[in-house]
Amino acid sequence: MDVRAIFMGLAFAFMWSSAFTSARMIVADAPPLTALALRFFASGLIGIAIAAALGQTARLTRSQWRATIIFGLCQNALYLGFNFVAMQWVEASLAAIVASTMPLLVALAGWAIFKERLRPLGYAGLLAGMVGVGIIMGHRISDGVDLVGLLFCGIGVLALAFATLSVRTASSGGNLLMIVGLQMLVGASLLAVAAVALETWDVNWTPRLGLAFAYTTLVPGLLATWVWFLLVARIGAVRAAAFHFLNPFFGVAIAALFLGESLTLWDVAGVVIIAGGILAVQMSRAVRA
């Protein structure tokens, strides 16, 4: 892995993790599904415009179209939709921790469903990850965390794990930025239907809302997704996914810094154990690959 790939991975992990804090700010002043649909609509149009200026086209292969639609549905509509709704009731740090378990779920599904064998380090990582999640969830539930919000975060991360399986297909064949823009519009379309059916337009216009919306649209929404596809194309999905072990650290640190969310020793211990489990699983898969 070269220095450029390392910087890309660090940048992606930071941007991806920061989305939970900016989302928490947005849902404090605007209906979550409406805000998310508008975010994806804006991100999608910007991405497509830049891609067209760079000479990219929407002439995608059949497998690229399929992966783009699946990714737009599962990551943008389901994963982020459930998380935006959940963050009306749960803290950004908890949402980030739940979402960061995605690599563990992917590895667990590979072992349980597809009969993929792991090295001992991988099995130890899975066990450590489950222990870390148990520590944090046990502590948060005893403190009265909203169970519906926690359930929504869980549904979202399952959708994200499924979406991850389509990344390799979507990132092959070029037109990466065009694919990013198109999948944003897929998510925007589905979320707009849900927003019209379930929400009313009730917005508290504040400077924080404007800044958080702009940041979420441009940085986690567009730039992070594009960097992720470039990283996967550069070093492969398995090695790229290793950077997810940083997400629990970045997620809780950014939420504590900008939202003042408190952390207990149980949270810190759980985050360290989960991060170690993710790293162990990805190192095991990388060696195997």
Score class of each variant (00 low, 15 high):
54 L>F: 12
168 R>A: 13
154 G>Q: 04
151 L>F: 07
13 A>P: 02
244 H>K: 02
26 I>D: 01
48 I>H: 05
261 E>P: 03
83 N>L: 08
19 A>T: 12
95 A>P: 03
9 G>I: 09
242 A>I: 01
46 I>A: 07
47 G>E: 13
265 L>C: 06
151 L>V: 12
101 T>V: 01
4 R>M: 09
222 L>M: 14
159 A>F: 05
98 V>D: 04
161 A>V: 10
124 A>T: 13
185 L>E: 14
82 F>L: 15
240 A>Q: 09
139 H>Q: 13
220 P>S: 08
116 E>D: 13
68 T>P: 01
208 R>K: 11
170 A>D: 09
201 W>C: 14
31 P>Q: 01
114 F>C: 02
118 L>N: 07
108 L>M: 14
155 I>N: 03
119 R>A: 15
184 M>P: 07
99 A>E: 00
244 H>D: 12
33 L>D: 00
89 W>K: 10
24 R>I: 00
251 G>P: 07
256 A>D: 04
251 G>M: 12
258 F>L: 15
123 Y>I: 11
264 T>A: 15
35 A>V: 12
5 A>N: 08
90 V>E: 07
57 T>C: 11
16 W>V: 06
118 L>I: 00
26 I>R: 00
156 G>P: 01
241 A>V: 06
288 R>C: 08
229 F>W: 07
241 A>N: 15
276 G>D: 05
262 S>M: 07
273 I>Q: 06
37 A>K: 08
204 N>P: 04
25 M>D: 02
128 A>E: 01
141 I>N: 04
77 A>K: 06
224 A>P: 08
244 H>I: 09
231 L>Y: 11
252 V>T: 11
29 D>E: 10
250 F>Y: 14
90 V>L: 00
149 G>R: 02
63 S>A: 11
235 I>V: 11
280 A>E: 13
42 A>C: 15
203 V>C: 11
238 V>T: 15
220 P>D: 14
228 W>F: 11
233 A>M: 07
235 I>M: 06
275 A>Q: 08
69 I>L: 14
87 M>G: 01
66 R>A: 15
253 A>E: 10
107 A>Q: 06
186 V>G: 04
125 G>H: 10
82 F>Y: 07
241 A>I: 10
250 F>L: 14
100 S>I: 01
93 S>V: 02
286 A>I: 14
181 G>S: 08
247 N>R: 05
182 L>M: 11
252 V>L: 14
80 L>E: 00
174 G>H: 02
38 L>C: 09
77 A>S: 15
287 V>D: 05
184 M>G: 07
76 N>E: 08
273 I>K: 02
185 L>P: 03
97 I>H: 04
196 V>R: 02
134 G>D: 05
243 F>W: 15
200 T>E: 06
209 L>S: 02
85 V>A: 12
254 I>E: 06
246 L>E: 09
73 L>I: 12
235 I>P: 05
234 R>T: 14
131 V>Q: 04
225 T>F: 14
86 A>S: 09
202 D>Y: 07
165 L>A: 05
104 L>T: 01
12 F>E: 03
28 A>Y: 01
80 L>R: 02
202 D>S: 10
286 A>V: 11
196 V>K: 05
213 F>D: 00
171 S>Q: 09
60 L>M: 11
95 A>R: 00
101 T>S: 04
